[in-house]
Computed example of a mutant assay.
Amino acid sequence: MAEIKTKANEVSVDDFLEAVEHPQRRADGKAVRAMMERVTGEPATMWGPTIIGFGSYHYRYASGHEGDMCRVGFSPRKAELVLYVGGFPEYEAMLARLGTHKRSKACLYIKKLADVDADVLAEITRRSFETTIDQCNAC
Rank of each mutant, 00 (worst) to 15 (best):
A118D: 10
D115C: 09
A27H: 08
V32Y: 12
V32H: 11
G64W: 05
E21S: 09
G67C: 04
I52N: 01
K105A: 14
M46K: 01
M36C: 07
S104H: 01
A2E: 13
E3Q: 15
T131D: 06
L113E: 05
D28H: 12
V85N: 03
L81T: 05
Y109N: 13
F16R: 04
L95P: 00
G86C: 03
G99M: 09
D134M: 07
K102G: 15
M69T: 10
Y91H: 13
Y61I: 02
I4L: 14
F88D: 03
P89D: 15
G67K: 01
G29M: 01
E21Q: 11
V39M: 11
A122D: 06
L98R: 08
P43L: 09
E92I: 09
A62T: 12
R38H: 12
D115L: 10
K78T: 06
R33I: 06
A114H: 07
V82N: 15
A96K: 15
V120I: 10
E90G: 08
M36S: 07
R33Y: 02
G86D: 06
A8I: 00
M36D: 10
Y59I: 00
E42H: 11
A31K: 14
R25Q: 15
Y59A: 01
V20D: 10
C139K: 10
T100A: 13
L108P: 02
R60C: 05
E90C: 07
S104R: 02
R26E: 07
M46L: 01
E92K: 09
C139F: 14
Q135P: 00
E18K: 12
C139T: 06
Y84P: 03
S63Q: 03
E66M: 12
E3H: 14
S56H: 14
S75T: 08
I4F: 14
R97N: 11
M36E: 11
K105T: 12
P76R: 02
G86H: 09
A106Y: 05
T132G: 06
P23H: 07
P76A: 05
Y59V: 02
Y61W: 04
A27F: 02
R103A: 14
A96M: 15
G99Q: 13
L17G: 03
G99S: 14
F129M: 05
S56M: 15
E66S: 12
T132Y: 05
Y59D: 05
M94P: 00
E130N: 04
T125S: 06
L17I: 07
F16C: 06
I124Y: 03
G99P: 13
Y57P: 01
I52Q: 01
L98N: 10
L121D: 09
V32D: 14
A44R: 01
E37K: 04
G48V: 07
Y84T: 13
